[in-house]
Design a protein around this nucleic acid. Sequence first.
DNA 1: CCCAATATGGGTACGCCGTACTCGATTTAT
DNA 2: ATAAATCGAGTACGGCGTACCCATATTGGG
Lengths: 255, 255
Amino acid sequence: MPIEYSGGGDPARSIELLWGLRERATRGPKPGLTVDRIVTAAVGLADAEGITGLSMRRVAERLGVGAMSLYRYVPGKAELLDLMVDRVSGETDRPSDVPGGWRARLEQVARENRRLYERHPWLLRVFSFRPPLGPGIVAKYDYELRSVEGVGLTDVEMDQVLTLVLGYAREAAAGLVEWRLFQERSGQTDDEWWTAVAPSLEKVFDAERYSVAARVGAASSEYYQGTYDPEQAFEFGLRRVLDGVAALVERDSPC
Amino acid sequence: MPIEYSGGGDPARSIELLWGLRERATRGPKPGLTVDRIVTAAVGLADAEGITGLSMRRVAERLGVGAMSLYRYVPGKAELLDLMVDRVSGETDRPSDVPGGWRARLEQVARENRRLYERHPWLLRVFSFRPPLGPGIVAKYDYELRSVEGVGLTDVEMDQVLTLVLGYAREAAAGLVEWRLFQERSGQTDDEWWTAVAPSLEKVFDAERYSVAARVGAASSEYYQGTYDPEQAFEFGLRRVLDGVAALVERDSPC
DNA sequence: CCCAATATGGGTACGCCGTACTCGATTTAT
DNA sequence: ATAAATCGAGTACGGCGTACCCATATTGGG
């Protein structure tokens, strides 16, 4: 059973790795690699080939090094994934002045998170709800919390709102990424796919029994000019989510 | 590169499999298995061992059969995953009369979807935004759409609202499942984990630079009596999402 | 009734994977 | 100069999905 997440190792060791606290050894040959270079290679590989293309052997290959050499720097693949997550999280854009109040700021946070997953789709398959507490994640969390600082929410509500918005961004990004992947892999547009599937489906689909599905499905495909449009879906959901947050923020001043 | 999704095969063949349209051959020995039995075994295995424990060899083992025999019934693992997704989707509870209007109905849909992922956590790692169009998925989609039928939304909006709510349920379930997994694997409560991590983190965490993160993080852990509580997180987010939908439904009658 | 046609079951093998173990080569403190 | 410590990496193990192949079982057509 291969490892898919991390946190299994010693927490202190993980923190040490994430924050680069390893003290240089005094004896022995100089290391030919650094943890940073390994993480860079791994991120590049995962970006290019997806999470299924990421293997210790191939990361090593990229660095011109034997597979087992990596284990001198990183305890295992799980910890490497932690480092990768923290790395790309630290690279998110964080503009200091977004005009338009909390709603505009939260919207920016959502959009930037979606971009993060877009740049690094493998992140969707790695991210855990309890992220590795490295410098990148911590800085990101602090920045993002500030988008809802001073708008009348309690500290706990601030965290909850952020969790909600980040979760939404993640879910929407997953839709976008899967949609793209599907198009690339099949080489088909939505329309082409549908016209390939429809004939077979018609034989078995009971349009009377499932009348609502038939009606709404048809309306949606027409609207989207395909069967799906990640941009429109994102905008729609984001508006709803932020409306829900607005209802919370303005609870003391209804209408 | 192992397959993680499906849809790569012939769509017609997939539909045939999903709807059980295979015509019995006239010649040759009688099959010792059925697609249904294979799917049942696979679901049972994935439920028990997680997605990483699901392999063709082990499914075959469960059925007392050689690994390659499965390929007589199913083209590959990707298609088997499709069948598994459709199977468990078809088993969701669908009460016919939920009192309380669209909001109560949508809430029920969200809760039932969360339960689905809770029962079958592997689903979180398999589900794609374009699900296999089998009988289970279709019936589920039709039922769920009916929760927002006749409340003044357009057909397209109905689909968008459902996508939003299902996405939320999925995201919340992911939090719950990961939280449980983490507790099981580490054998630690949130508190124990935190007291193990805190000393190392204190050495590197700059509480002045990241003052908001420090303050909110502390408040949250105290509130949750741990560092997280999936139940409370779910309820909070669901209320916000449904508030956002309410703003859409009542757009013509503000306040 | 026989046999050719066909489908089933499954063994073997290939190329991947993560990583435990081991050992010679290299560097430095003493 | 030498002993201690670390580095790089080869080998090997047990797992994976599945391509390929063939003996076996079953049945339709003559």
